Simulated assay, not measured.
Amino acid sequence: MPSAAEKTYNVLFLCTGNSARSIIAEAIMNRVGQGRFKGFSAGSQPKGEVHPYTLDLLKTLNYNTDFARSKNWEEFAEPGAPQMDFVFTVCDSAAAETCPVWPGQPMSAHWGVPDPAAAEGTDAERHFAFSDTYRMLEGRISVFTSLPIAGLDRLALQKRLDDIGKA
């Protein structure tokens, strides 16, 4: 059994459509987490495709987008699915949604950010909304991945997770 310092933590990002925010968060986690964290994403009502601006943004930032697909959160509640250590909701409305019960009782928090897919305006303004979403999520994920997780008790860790979502 690996020690807490060697453990790879599984992190699920949930959103409604799983086409923008949660996909961006998954990509960031898998880069910033440097093997200590493995990111996943899903939606309660997946769109069935990743928003093209999400793919454009990630490709511009040198992410491999082969992982990106819009999927239902039920995929991660099935037998044999990776056990989640952390589950974060990243949409404005997700905190009010009914979430499935996750095996192993992962730590969870709401890290809501505005939906870039709902942005209106010129093409440049819409692309900026995706970049802004990336900036917010990258900041939160960077703070999260630098936490001394193994050294915090569950209550202190929950407070930190909640505080990150308010930043």
Rank of each mutant, 00 (worst) to 15 (best):
Y63K: 03
T65F: 04
F13I: 09
G17L: 09
A5K: 12
V101C: 11
P103S: 12
E97S: 12
N30C: 01
W73F: 13
A20M: 07
G48Y: 06
W111H: 05
L55I: 14
L58Q: 03
L55H: 03
P52S: 11
S44E: 10
A27R: 01
M107C: 08
D92V: 11
P82K: 03
S108Y: 12
E49K: 13
G43Q: 06
R69W: 11
F86N: 01
L12E: 01
V90S: 02
I28H: 04
C99R: 13
G112H: 07
G17E: 14
K47C: 08
F40H: 09
W73Q: 04
M29P: 01
S41V: 10
S22I: 07
N30I: 00
A118D: 14
C15N: 05
H127G: 00
G39I: 06
I24S: 02
E74K: 14
R21T: 11
D66L: 06
W111S: 05
T89Y: 06
K71C: 01
L61W: 06
N30W: 04
T89H: 05
G35W: 11
D92G: 12
A94V: 13
V50G: 02
A95C: 10
E6I: 05
P46W: 03
T16E: 12
A129F: 05
N10Y: 03
T54H: 03
F86M: 02
Y9T: 05
T8V: 15
T60R: 14
A129K: 01
G104D: 10
W73D: 03
E74T: 15
E120S: 11
A42T: 08
F86K: 04
T16V: 15
E26A: 02
L57Q: 07
S93Y: 11
F40K: 02
F67H: 12
R31I: 08
Q83R: 11
E78C: 04
S41R: 10
V87D: 01
Y53H: 13
A118R: 13
N30E: 04
M29A: 08
C99A: 14
A42S: 11
E26L: 00
E49C: 08
Q45P: 00
G48K: 06
I24V: 12
Q45W: 13
M107W: 13
A95W: 10
L14W: 02
P116K: 09
K59S: 10
Y63T: 02
K7P: 00
G48F: 08
V11Q: 06
A27V: 07
L58E: 01
N10L: 05
S108L: 08
M29I: 06
G33F: 01
A109T: 08
A4G: 13
V101A: 15
E26F: 00
A124Q: 14
G48R: 03
V113C: 07
V90N: 02
N62L: 09
T98F: 09
D56E: 15
T8D: 05
V11K: 06
A95L: 10
S22L: 09
A42L: 09
A68K: 00
